[in-house]
Amino acid sequence: MPLMKKKKMLKKSEQTVILAIASFIVFFIFLQVLPLQSSKERNEEVTAIASSKVTDVHTSDEENSQKESSEENQERELGHSSKEQPSAEEEPSEKEPKNKETEEENLAGGNKESSKEDLAGQGGNKEKQKIVYLTFDDGPSDVEEELLDLLGKYHAKATFFMLEPNMKKYPDAIKKMVNEGHAVGMHGVTHDIKKFYKSKSTVLEEMNKGQASLEEISGVRSFLIRTPYGSVPHMTPEYKQAVNEHGYKLWDWNVDSNDWKYRDGRYVENSINQIKKIEQSGGEPIILLHSKSSTLKHLSSLLDYLTENGYVMERIEEDMEPYHF
């Protein structure tokens, strides 16, 4: 075989061997790299899965926390609602007081936090209340209906001892007195000492005339009387016996406001000073006032004092024991 051809064959064989070695090396490297890549991918996959699990755990914890918080809020709301709105089994009957305090308040005649009008109203136990009697002489007058309106605002009742000529002059005022629950009585006809107290007959005549006119106007037959200037010293035992025999109830007063003299309003302070003394002695004030515009002008100050100090303003009843000087 020629030398050149032999060299070429050898060279080709060497190239084949080198190529085979190179291929083996590449294959070996590939085998080494592939597991690393697979391992890396697996690690990344595991890491991702682990991270996802952790995220899911946190998410679950947050959801559970929110759920528990929501359930706690619902429980608190349900508990609060149940306190504010008792069930039908727990709801007190309308006929029964809800508790002892409510029962005591109902027995006392209303809410403890009463307004002026409540204090001056007619509710409650009179045995525990301070009573005052407002009495107005010489009416009715041109301010009578305004006077009655003021008393109405304070839920105050009063007693009116009226002169017969004024009854005829202001009949509507008398009807208003009766309709609003005030007491009405007689104060005579003339208001003249010499004429009224001339004899027991003149005393009776004036009271009988006033009684007849009052009944004609209002339909009320009253036996309440107050004599002009009071029973002392002009109502003698003989005079008193005469009116008693005719069923009249003679009333004087224990608080003289002197409103006819103190027209600037000083009569209010004068009355209050006397009321305090009466209260200390355990008595009930019977206040002498007059149906005059000057009295009406300052009357609200007196009514305020009485209301704020717990007095209930009541009318005189015919079955009460009369007060005399």
Rank of each mutant, 00 (worst) to 15 (best):
D118P: 03
G110C: 11
G123Y: 14
E75A: 14
F136K: 01
S60Y: 03
E117S: 10
E103K: 15
T135D: 01
E68I: 08
G79T: 12
N111M: 13
H58V: 08
N99K: 05
G79H: 11
L134P: 06
K95N: 09
S69P: 00
E84W: 02
E113H: 14
V132T: 11
E77T: 11
S69E: 09
P92K: 04
K116C: 04
K126M: 12
E63C: 00
K98D: 08
D137T: 04
S69W: 03
S60D: 03
P86F: 02
S60E: 02
E103D: 15
S81G: 09
D61W: 00
I131P: 01
K67W: 02
P86I: 09
V132C: 12
S70P: 00
K126L: 15
T59Q: 06
E91I: 10
E96V: 14
Q66G: 00
E104W: 07
N64R: 03
S69K: 09
A108I: 12
Q66I: 06
E62A: 04
N111K: 15
E62S: 03
L78H: 07
L134N: 04
S70K: 03
A88L: 14
V132M: 05
S69H: 02
E94K: 06
S82A: 14
K83L: 14
S114C: 12
D118A: 13
E63A: 04
E117F: 11
E96R: 10
E105W: 06
E91P: 00
R76A: 10
Q66S: 02
E105A: 14
E72W: 05
S87T: 15
S60V: 01
E104H: 06
K112I: 11
S70G: 02
K100Q: 13
Q129G: 02
S93Y: 05
Y133H: 12
Q74A: 13
E62G: 00
K67V: 01
E90S: 10
H80V: 09
L119G: 05
S65C: 01
E63T: 06
E94V: 10
E84M: 10
E91Q: 08
H80I: 08
S115N: 13
N64G: 00
G139R: 09
L107H: 11
T102K: 12
Q66T: 05
K100F: 13
G121E: 07
K98Q: 07
E104P: 02
E68Y: 04
S81N: 11
T102M: 07
S65W: 02
E96A: 12
E117K: 15
A120G: 13
R76Q: 09
D137H: 06
K126N: 09
S82N: 06
Q122L: 05
K130V: 07
S81M: 05
E94Q: 06
E104Q: 12
H80G: 06
E89F: 04
R76E: 13
V132S: 08
Q129H: 11
N125P: 03
F136E: 04
Q74F: 13
E72P: 00
T135Y: 04
D138E: 05
E90D: 14
S82Q: 08
D61N: 04
A120I: 03
K83R: 12
E104S: 10
K67S: 05
K67H: 03
S69N: 07
N111L: 14
K128G: 03
Q74N: 06
S69Y: 05
A120R: 11
A108F: 08
A108L: 15
E104I: 15
E117P: 01
E63D: 04
Q129N: 10
S87W: 00
R76H: 02
E94D: 13
Q85K: 10
